[in-house]
Amino acid sequence: MRIRAQAAGDKTTVRVLMSHEMETGLRKDPAGKTIPAWFIQEVTAQLNGKPVLTAEWGPSVSKNPFLQFIVKGAKAGDKIAVTWRDNRGETRTDEATVS
């Protein structure tokens, strides 16, 4: 995951690029077999360990998802952690420092 968090005054813009197939479950492979759905269902973010964002996603979010949100009250040096969990139960967390 690539995370960039930039503070401007008391608002911090966080941009996240995740690496994920986001397979809808509606596509078929060349043999005509349906490719099973595989997508991120939940995205959460923490500021210095405190939860600040919860989002739920469906399979229509694009492959390798991009997310931008704005956190209030963060300052340079604070830690922003972003976690996703997909419909297979796999999760990934990455952290960035607010600049």
């Binding site: 500021l47 600040v52 229509s60 979010v61 694009s62 998802p65 991009f66 997310l67 949100f69 956190v71």
Partner: peptide, 14 residues
Amino acid sequence: NEFVEPSFTTRVKM
């Protein structure tokens, strides 16, 4: 919630 602005951007499939 009180910690985020009500403003979110992402990319979707259409």
